[in-house]
Each structure stands twice: as structure tokens, then as C-alpha cells.
Write a protein that binds this DNA or RNA. Structure first.
Length: 492
RNA sequence: GCCCCCAUCGUCUAGUGGCCAAGGACAUCGCCCUCUCACGGCGAAGACAGGGGUUCAAAUCCCCUUGGGGGUACCA
């Protein structure tokens, strides 16, 4: 087989949807697996909806995921340009060729007329298809129509009998009836731009694409495209239609289900490695016991034969879990690199971080690491490590710091800390135990109040770790601050 | 309306006629660890949509029904 060439062809009308990202990933994996070429092409023929900003967003999203392309925007390549809007001359050329061949013709029907006829067909229980009335217009008729101010579209003259089989690598052969399923569809709009079904064929053929891997939503359009390939004498590529991604209610995954744009996941602190791993499992599976795959493993193991046929529900909880798995696998300096921007954005750390503070932040991350699902969690979970005016959670304070012995306990701990040669478990635990007997309480009843006093919440890393990280000075100040707060609020 | 695709635990899936009284992962629940929360360990519950065939044997093949998804544009 000749070298594999695949492509991802997003239309820049918004953000990169996770479904699109998954399609890009499968193409990328397939290319890498076969040492082939991954082409990126921007399908911006819909001038009204396409924007440059949206293109950049998609490029950024792909880069974040690590899905680098071999040919395309910013990379060049021998089959450019890679923006459809810059390939108009090519589409015109091949449309003209089809007309010469008698496989395309001008159509002067208006959208209104078309719609009316379509409604009539539905009412009669028939297939909705163009009736072909402009297919054999005489020159005079054409002139008359034009004189009425009508601007024509160009339609493909489709086959009027037989069937068009689609050989699909994941679904097998799917056969479509030419008469009822492939009508004379528009290939050039009246605004002078080609339609998707036409441009995609010209581009894929000219770019020498060998495998078209795309969403199942394109399956029904494939016979139309195949007829164009054949009419133009192009070699028909192999097709693989991968299942759609659904929301929890089984409808197509969309914004109303929550985050769907890759950019958004990036901003919320999902690691590319986790995104890629999770996305790979949507519609593909390897064996019965493995769910964690490195990119290298995916590249090695990916195959279209193992792509599933049924649609997959996007499970954000599993993605979160997986992100946690990858966060735990990071070395601390790596975690620091991804966490730092979040802390800076929340004003917990300065733009310029001194070596000492970095050293401290690294230790904080060591404690936080197993507790993170999203990198962004470092803000919520770690703020009290960086600021002294951390907020107290009112309900927690009320629940834990309003016991009769609270004040005595805090004072006791304050004294212990003040005289402590070092703040580690080895020294402190025996001291705390003395307090336990003195107040007739359990360890938890001593530690929880300290925790709330030092952090403002009842959730934190182990208390001895917190104590050690904070250091004597800050611990004493915080206990004092808490005592003051309690008195001011008249809680003790 | 018409056409196409699909159908295993709540979810992602393993399963390609006997190895399946259906395996794994997430989620859920319980226990252990324990100063809280995580992490980790152990365990529980949980599915072949329904009905007909074919076969010695069906989750696996065929048909029907039902359900879900997609297409049916001068969107891509």
C-alpha cells in the first residue's frame, strides 16, 4: 500500500469540539501508527460563519493536545493551500470539468421553490430529492431564467440508476440506492463558493488522502462524494466512519451538556495526556484490562478494526478520574510548571517567584498532589498555604470551633508549638497526647480544631505536614488570629 | 415522511459460535488504612432490549419489533 495520508478538516466556525478532537486524534494515531502523514485543512467555505480567530483557537487546541500536523497551516506542504477559501480556482476548474463531461449543470430554481417541492414530497411520503427539472434546460430557457434575475447554482448530475456501495473500514459495506438516495445535489452555491460535498472530494483527491476518517454524521453523504470521485476519474479513498459522541441524555454532545470545547478543558486544568487518553477510549478499546495508555502505547496499538460502531456517551467523571491519575504521575517540578499559572492568576503567587518560594510551593504540591482532580484545584485546595488572611468557612467554624473546650485546646496547642524545637510528628504527637488526657478528648477533637484554625476549612493534608510547612511563626499567628476571630464573633 | 447506522452493567468497553452461570475501568455502596480530605488496599451490587429462527451449542449468525443516533441544505 502506498504511504498513508490522512487529514483532519475542521471548519472554523467556533471552538474545537471534543468530538472534533477525537476525530483529529484517531486520524493522528492512524497516521503515526502507519508512519503516514497527518494533514490539517481548514474548511472555511462558509464565509458567513468562518473566522480567523476561530481558526487560531482550533490550531491552539490541537497543539495543546499534542496533535501536530505534518502539512497544513503554518507548516506548508506540497498539496496546499490548506485553506479551502484559497482553493477556489481548483473547485472552479473541476466544476467546469464536470460540466464539460455533462455531469453538472446550472440550476435556476430558487430556495423557496425547492423548499416548497420538498414539503410536497414529504407530504406524499416520498424521498426528498431534487426533481432534476433544470437538468435539460435549453439555451433559450436558461437565458429567460437569467433575465428574471435568477442566479444559478451548479448541480451534480448524479447517476440515475444502480447503487453506490460505501466500503467502510469500521462498518463494512453500506449500500445506497442511487435513485432515491443520491439526487442532483448542489456543488457550487450561488455565492460562487463550492459546497462541502464537492470541495471535500476535490481536496481529498488532490491532497492524495488515502483514508478518510471522520464522524458517522458523514456516512450518508459518502455515496454522493463517491459519485464525484468517479465522475472526475479520481481514486476513491478508504472510508472509516467513527461513532458520534453523546451527552448523558444520549443526544448529541453539545454545549448544554457542559464543557465541550477543548479550550475550556485546557483552561480548567485538564492535562493533555489525560484528554488524549480519555478521548482515545471513546469509540475505541484495546483489551479487557487496560484503560491507561500513554501516547506511545496508543500509537502502537491503535487500529481502525477496533473502533466500535456504537455511539459513546461522554463521561466527565471518568475524565476527571483519569486526569487525577495523570496528575499523580507527574514529577513535582512538572506539576509545578502547570500549577504555577493558576496560583499566579489567583494572586497567590507573584509573577516572579523566588527560589525559596518555589521550593516551598514544590513542598505544598507534594502534599496536594493526590488530592487534585484538575490542576485548577490547586487554588481552592492550596490558598491557605500562601496567604495569611485565608477565609474561614462559617459552617465549619461553627461546627468545630464552638465546643466548650475549644479555647483551651487552641491555647494549649499554641503553647506546645511555641516551645517546640521542631514541628514534626515525632515531637508533637506525644505533646498532643498529653493534651488529650488533660481535656478528656480524642485526637480528632484536638486536630480538627487546629486544622480549621490554620486553614479555615476542615479538609487539608495531614496536620503534621501542614504544621511543618507553615512553620512556627505562622502557626502561632494563625492560632491567635483564629482566637481573635472567635471572640469577635462571640463564638467562644 | 424517506434513507442509513447502531444495540453487553448507570457510563466506556472486553467478548468475532463452545474457554461466559459474561471480564475490566469510571461512578455507586461497604470494609480496611486514618487527624479531615484524598491516595492506596479489599469486597459488594450491577448488563447480553424483546420476540422468532439457524445450530449439538448463540451475547456472538439471520429475521422482525422496539429503542437510540445520523442524514435528508445554496452548513460543514
Amino acid at each position: 500500500m502506498s504511504a498513508v495520508r490522512v487529514r483532519f478538516a475542521p471548519s472554523p466556525t467556533g471552538y474545537l469540539h471534543v468530538g472534533g478532537a477525537r476525530t483529529a486524534l484517531f486520524n493522528w494515531l492512524f497516521a503515526k501508527h502507519h508512519s503516514g502523514v497527518f494533514v490539517l485543512r481548514i474548511e472555511d467555505t462558509d464565509a458567513a460563519r468562518s473566522t480567523e480567530a476561530a481558526t487560531q483557537v482550533i490550531l491552539d487546541a490541537l497543539e495543546y493536545l499534542g496533535l501536530d500536523w505534518d502539512e497544513g497551516p503554518g507548516r506548508g506542504g506540497d498539496y496546499g493551500p490548506y485553506y479551502q477559501s484559497q482553493r477556489l480556482d481548483l473547485y472552479q476548474k473541476y466544476a467546469a470539468k464536470l460540466m464539460e463531461l455533462g455531469r453538472a449543470y446550472e440550476c435556476y430554481c430558487t430556495p423557496e421553490e425547492l423548499d416548497q417541492r420538498r414539503q410536497e414530497q414529504i407530504k406524499q411520503g416520498k424521498d426528498t430529492r431534487y426533481d432534476g427539472r433544470c437538468r435539460h434546460l435549453s439555451d433559450q430557457e436558461r437565458l429567460d431564467l437569467k433575465a428574471q434575475g435568477r442566479v444559478p447554482v451548479i448541480r451534480f448530475a448524479s447517476l440515475e440508476e444502480g447503487e453506490t456501495p460505501v466500503e467502510d473500514l469500521v462498518r463494512g459495506t453500506v449500500t445506497f440506492d442511487n435513485v432515491t438516495q443520491v439526487d442532483d445535489f448542489v456543488i457550487f452555491k450561488s455565492d460562487g463558493m463550492p459546497t462541502y460535498n464537492f470541495a471535500v472530494v476535490v481536496d481529498d483527491a488532490l491532497m492524495k488522502i488515502t483514508h478518510v476518517i471522520r464522524g458517522e454524521d458523514h456516512l450518508s453523504n459518502t455515496p454522493k462524494q463517491i459519485q464525484i470521485y468517479e465522475a472526475l476519474g479520481f481514486e476513491v479513498p478508504k472510508f472509516a466512519h467513527i461513532p458520534m459522541i453523546l451527552g448523558p441524555d444520549k443526544s448529541l454532545l453539545s454545549k448544554r451538556h457542559g464543557a465541550t470545547s477543548v479550550t475550556q478543558f485546557y483552561e480548567e486544568g485538564y492535562l493533555a495526556s489525560a484528554m488524549v487518553n480519555y478521548l482515545s477510549l471513546l469509540g475505541w478499546g484495546y483489551d479487557d484490562s487496560q484503560t491507561i495508555f500513554s501516547v506511545d502505547e496508543l500509537t502502537e496499538k491503535f487500529s481502525l478494526e477496533r473502533v466500535s460502531k456504537n455511539p459513546a456517551v461522554f463521561d466527565i467523571q471518568k475524565l476527571e478520574w483519569m486526569n487525577g491519575v495523570y496528575i499523580r504521575e507527574l514529577a513535582l517540578p512538572e506539576l509545578y510548571d502547570v500549577a504555577l499559572p493558576y496560583w499566579q492568576k489567583a494572586n497567590l503567587l507573584p509573577a516572579e517567584v523566588s527560589p525559596a518560594i518555589k521550593e516551598y510551593a514544590l513542598r505544598v504540591l507534594g502534599e496536594l498532589q493526590t488530592r487534585l482532580k484538575l490542576v485548577a484545584d490547586v487554588i481552592e485546595l492550596g490558598q491557605y498555604f500562601f496567604i495569611d488572611d485565608y477565609p474561614y468557612q462559617p459552617d465549619i467554624v461553627r461546627k468545630i470551633l464552638t465546643k466548650p473546650q475549644t479555647e483551651d485546646v487552641l491555647n494549649y496547642v499554641h503553647d506546645v508549638i511555641k516551645d517546640a524545637p521542631q514541628l514534626d510528628e515525632e515531637y508533637l504527637k506525644p505533646q498532643f497526647k498529653i493534651g488529650l488526657e488533660k481535656f478528656g478528648i480524642k485526637m480528632g477533637e484536638l486536630i480538627q480544631p487546629i486544622r480549621v484554625a490554620l486553614t479555615g476549612t476542615n479538609v487539608s493534608p495531614g496536620i503534621y505536614d501542614v504544621l511543618e510547612l507553615l512553620g512556627k511563626e505562622r502557626v502561632l499567628a494563625r492560632i491567635e488570629r483564629t482566637l481573635t476571630m472567635l471572640r469577635e464573633e462571640e463564638l467562644i
